[in-house]
Simulated scan of single mutants.
Amino acid sequence: MRNTSTRLLLSCAAIGVVGGIVFIVNSYLGGTLNAVAPMLYGLTLGVYFVPGALAQRLFRRGGVALLVAVLSGLVAAAFNPLGFLAALISVGIGALQELPFLVTRYRRWPVWLFVAGAVLSGVVLAAGMYRLVGARDLDPAGALVLVAGSLLSPVVFTLLALALARPLAATGVTRGLAPRR
């Protein structure tokens, strides 16, 4: 991250801390949902994509999704039942979010690139959930709901983050932080 100002770091930290608090709440709600209706667990996983996508959209700089994911994961790790593993998972999600923009060398920030990254992440997530939750133990409809939810959840929550970024940017909080278009 070249030309990184203290203001950018503090803005990423604020997004990361709020994201970490949301992750803590989601880990308990998602864990409860996994125990009650494991096929619906994939629908909750997209929450982990909001802070990184929000930072990328607001600041349009390389590395901000990874930075925000690390901070969110560290905040969540203290209160998450998974402990430090939650931070590692968050770092993996941040790295997946950075990948499409890294390919373009952080020169382009169109919405379709955010969606492409979310779809890629959804595929990785669906494969992991299929194995982790044990979709093969579910009936075919339940396995389909689990995989479809894991695929679509990152896309839906990434689009939600992009929608949240628009009014935040309109307030002027990112003035001087994002490169000129």
Rank of each mutant, 00 (worst) to 15 (best):
122 G>S: 03
107 R>M: 03
131 R>A: 11
108 R>W: 13
132 L>K: 07
96 L>H: 02
105 R>T: 15
90 S>T: 04
119 V>D: 01
91 V>I: 15
111 V>L: 14
112 W>E: 02
110 P>L: 08
100 P>H: 09
120 L>Y: 03
102 L>E: 09
101 F>N: 11
117 G>A: 07
118 A>C: 07
116 A>G: 04
127 A>D: 00
98 E>H: 09
110 P>M: 06
94 G>C: 09
103 V>N: 11
117 G>Q: 11
109 W>R: 06
96 L>D: 05
102 L>Q: 13
108 R>F: 08
91 V>L: 11
105 R>N: 13
105 R>H: 11
95 A>H: 07
131 R>K: 06
103 V>K: 09
133 V>L: 07
114 F>E: 07
119 V>T: 02
101 F>P: 06
109 W>F: 15
124 V>L: 08
127 A>W: 10
94 G>I: 02
132 L>M: 14
98 E>I: 05
102 L>K: 14
115 V>Y: 03
92 G>M: 13
109 W>M: 14
104 T>L: 12
95 A>R: 08
108 R>E: 14
121 S>N: 09
129 M>I: 07
98 E>T: 06
105 R>E: 15
119 V>S: 01
93 I>N: 14
126 A>K: 08
97 Q>K: 07
131 R>M: 08
98 E>D: 06
92 G>N: 05
112 W>K: 03
101 F>D: 10
132 L>N: 13
90 S>A: 15
121 S>T: 10
115 V>Q: 06
91 V>H: 13
104 T>V: 14
116 A>E: 02
122 G>P: 14
97 Q>M: 15
93 I>P: 04
91 V>S: 07
103 V>H: 12
92 G>D: 10
95 A>N: 08
111 V>S: 14
110 P>Q: 10
101 F>Q: 12
126 A>W: 07
108 R>V: 08
94 G>R: 04
120 L>H: 00
108 R>C: 00
126 A>Q: 04
103 V>Q: 06
129 M>C: 05
121 S>Q: 07
112 W>S: 02
127 A>Q: 02
116 A>K: 08
114 F>N: 09
125 L>P: 00
103 V>Y: 05
